[in-house]
Simulated scan of single mutants.
Amino acid sequence: MTQHYLEGRSESELLWFQRRSFLQAAAAWSAVGGLSAAHAQARGNVVELRGDATVNGKALEPNQSVQTGDEIATGPRSTLIFVVGNSAFHVRQNSNMVVERGPTINAVSLLRLLTGAVVSVWGKGSSRQIVTPTLTAGIRGTGVYTEIFSQQGGRTYFCNCYGVVDLASGNDREVSESNYHQAVWGEPMLDGRAALTPARAINHTDEELEYLARLIGERTAWQISGKKGSKETEREYGG
């Protein structure tokens, strides 16, 4: 188990990949051919649902699908793991987000996170974004963790766990190239201060990214290279 830091989250939220129910669900998902087989067999794309979640205001059932264009909300002590196209998502408890449609019904063009947190792994592609109230991230092929801290003025925590991401917050713009966790805060603009500020890796683990990558038939950068860097590396950010 990799070292990780908690800030406002419980240990159990980060250990979902150890649950027997998830391991069985993930094995079943892979055994029947993943998303392509789900479409062919008219099965849902929800890998696991624990607790309560709604799609467009209606209760989500484990055998249903999350489609692009849907608004998703999870309740307390709930978790939702699903796959759309070549992207996999783990939505933490008390989260609200919209997955907007791309060129096809099975392509996500934009993930709009309104509250809460989501771990996501994206296969290669272009013209995709994650948007929060204080940050926009242009996604290529990458694994990321995004969380909105409502109790801290709505600031956004964003970690580019691996890959290339175009970051924008306020007047600040940066290209993040990471092989192993490069994190920032997207701050509300106050008194002309920089909106992008460095952060350390919090509230997510390597294993979470690895399991989500496996659901779409991929591997993380550190699995491919066979080595990991330091989560403590920080850069200077500015406009």
Rank of each mutant, 00 (worst) to 15 (best):
S150Y: 01
T68C: 10
A40G: 13
I130A: 11
R101I: 12
T134G: 01
W122Y: 14
G102S: 01
I105D: 06
E71G: 13
R140L: 01
M97P: 02
A137V: 03
T115G: 05
V144A: 15
R92V: 10
G69C: 06
G123T: 01
V118T: 15
R140Q: 02
Q129Y: 00
V144Y: 03
G125C: 11
G123S: 03
G153S: 13
G102K: 05
T68I: 03
Q152V: 09
V144T: 13
V91L: 01
S120M: 15
Q67Y: 07
R101W: 07
S120G: 12
I105S: 07
S65E: 02
V118F: 04
V131L: 12
R92P: 04
E48Q: 06
E147Y: 07
S126C: 05
Q152L: 15
R92H: 14
S36C: 10
Y157F: 11
I130P: 04
L111C: 15
F82E: 08
A53K: 03
R50V: 03
G123I: 00
Y145W: 14
E100Y: 09
T74D: 04
R77E: 03
G123V: 02
P62I: 02
T68D: 02
T79V: 15
G34A: 07
V144P: 13
G125Y: 06
D52I: 06
K124C: 04
I72N: 03
E61P: 12
N106I: 02
Q152K: 15
V119M: 01
K58G: 01
S109K: 12
G75L: 11
F82S: 09
A88Y: 06
K58M: 04
V164N: 10
S126F: 14
T136A: 13
G123D: 06
N106S: 10
G85D: 12
T136I: 10
Q67P: 01
